[in-house]
Simulated assay, not measured.
Amino acid sequence: MAMTTLTVLKFESPDGAENALEVIEDLNKRQLIALHDAAIVTWSQGKKKPKIRQLSSLTGVGAFSGAFWGMLFGLLFFVPFLGMAIGAAMGALAGSMADVGISDEFIRSVRSKVTEGTSALFLMTSGAVMDKVVEAMKDFKFEVIASNLTKEQEEKLREAFSED
């Protein structure tokens, strides 16, 4: 079983992520990458907060629950940024995120790079045929902020956010 990777791609325009996702979805149809789940963050110029869209069409084995994305985006964009004084609840939450490969470093990195006038594509994928993916994505200008999950971390993550 191939490892699932959480990859964050940052684009220099508010619609970059949306356009890139179409390419990834096409690669998925052609079985050149397995797209398990995705979410798009669009941050238009002049807006205080980004808009977030989950790919609801992908509910399936690999899809994470809305709770996972909600918590991740909460940590990234909606928690007032108070340095380490986030509060005990958020601290514990951040701890459980760290267990699944989403570290403070990851959060800081995304938070500092995904800003007004940009967009980001959050992808849960596995089994990418790298040269084909690279070829398909070469026309896009983006920066990769990646976080790899081990099998164990992935299971912990699914467990933590499974909706029963």
Rank of each mutant, 00 (worst) to 15 (best):
W69Q: 00
L93E: 06
G66Q: 01
E116A: 04
L32I: 08
L21E: 04
K156G: 11
R111Y: 07
A136Y: 07
L157H: 09
G74E: 00
A20N: 08
L75S: 12
T4R: 15
T115K: 06
G16R: 05
P80N: 02
L21I: 03
D15G: 04
L123I: 09
E163G: 08
L35Q: 13
M137W: 04
V129P: 01
Q153M: 13
N19F: 04
V100M: 15
A39L: 06
G16T: 03
M90C: 04
N148F: 13
K156C: 11
L75W: 05
I24E: 11
S147F: 08
P80G: 03
S147E: 13
E143N: 10
G101Y: 05
D131S: 02
V129H: 07
N19V: 05
D139N: 14
K132Q: 11
D139E: 08
G101S: 05
A128V: 07
F64D: 10
L35E: 12
P50Q: 01
K113W: 04
K138W: 08
L6D: 09
D104Q: 10
F122G: 00
F64W: 14
V23N: 07
E155A: 15
I86S: 07
L27R: 11
S56T: 14
L72W: 03
S119G: 00
L157W: 13
P80E: 04
K141N: 14
K141D: 12
F68R: 01
G66C: 02
V23M: 08
V110Y: 02
V41D: 05
E25N: 12
T150P: 00
D99G: 11
M137H: 07
A146W: 06
K151E: 15
V144A: 14
F11G: 05
S162V: 13
A146V: 11
E105M: 06
L27M: 13
K47D: 08
A38L: 13
A20G: 06
A88T: 09
